[in-house]
Amino acid sequence: MSNIGLIIEERSADIGNFLVGRLLPFREKRAVGPFVFLDHMGPAFLKDYQNLDVPPHPHIGLSTLTYLFEGAILHRDSVGTEMEITPGAVNWMTAGKGVVHSERTPEYLRTTDKSLHGLQIWVALPKEKENIEPSFVHVEAKDIPEWQQDNVTVKLIAGEAFGKKSPVPVYSPLYLIEIKSTSKATLNIGKDLFGESALYILEGEIINDGNTYGSKQILVAKESSLCQFEMSENSTVYIFGGEPFPEEHFIFWNFVHSDKAVIEKAKQDWTDQKFPKVPNETEFVPLPQPRVR
């Protein structure tokens, strides 16, 4: 990616009984376009007695995107959804004014050895959509646009790019693109991008201006239109970004909003358990308390 403005290294974060690689937000870059959060889950190899169990927890003011490379997650939410996500499919949950959901290992995998690997992404909603009704959409892997270009395989997971459109129902101009190489390839795709842009290297290497960059890094471009790089063989990268919002969006825990007062109300509502419930779930994640310094 030409004209790299910032390099973000993956940092370890604990989400309960599961370690992830945290990429966004970063102290020097809180968002890339509308993308405000990016976790790299795994790869984790779980024994027959180990499972992913994230109890019900709330969100406001955002959409979540779950995209798996390996494994399976059972999603339940307060809209009434119960959906298993498997590799290549997209779970797109829009919190709007408030939603609660859980993420767990499906029942049929809970007593077997299993693996889990994927991305968890949060996309902030534009100001006029922050308080819409919550919703959930599942898009099967076969329905994600995929094609060959410049000796690589490209998938448009969400948004619009290259004259194509993903069926994932986003709320602002954005793109999330997967690119896989089996041999060395040179790409110049900047003319197809817009707004702010970044590239996440999942595996392999890319070369830009004579510099080599390895896996588990985000390269943030100074300009989206300057996007030329060489991929080494057997590499996978994700290019994401879009139009940034004119107003700042604030983040506390799982709450994202342009109005701090709305976040404060959400904190109190969750403490008082006024959010809607997830059917067939009784646990919940308590509101984090400020650290004593």
Rank of each mutant, 00 (worst) to 15 (best):
I7W: 06
I8N: 02
E10G: 03
E10H: 05
R11W: 04
A13L: 13
D14H: 12
G16E: 04
F18C: 08
V20A: 09
V20Y: 02
G21H: 03
L23D: 04
L23H: 03
E28R: 14
V36T: 10
P43Q: 04
P43Y: 00
A44C: 11
L46P: 02
K47W: 07
D48I: 04
D48H: 15
L52M: 10
D53E: 11
V54T: 05
H57M: 04
P58T: 09
I60Y: 02
L62N: 07
L62H: 07
T64S: 09
L74Y: 06
R76E: 06
P87C: 00
G88S: 03
V90Q: 01
W92T: 03
A95R: 00
A95L: 01
G96F: 08
K97Q: 11
G98W: 00
H101C: 09
R104W: 08
E107L: 13
E107D: 15
R110I: 10
T111M: 12
T112P: 07
K114R: 14
L119A: 02
L119G: 02
Q120D: 07
I121F: 13
K127A: 13
K127T: 14
K129I: 06
E130L: 14
I132C: 13
E133D: 09
S135A: 11
F136C: 07
H138C: 11
E140H: 13
E140S: 11
E146P: 10
I157W: 12
A158L: 05
G159E: 01
F162Y: 08
V168E: 06
V170P: 06
P173Q: 08
L174C: 06
L176V: 00
I177Q: 08
I179M: 03
K180V: 03
K180H: 03
K191C: 07
D192Q: 11
D192I: 10
L199K: 00
G204Q: 00
E205V: 07
I206L: 02
I207V: 11
D209S: 15
T212H: 05
G214I: 00
S215P: 00
S215L: 00
Q217R: 12
E233N: 08
S235H: 01
T236A: 02
V237T: 00
G241P: 01
I251F: 08
I251A: 08
I251G: 04
S258W: 12
K260D: 11
A261V: 14
A261G: 13
A261F: 15
Q268H: 13
K274I: 07
K274S: 07
F275Q: 05
K277A: 12
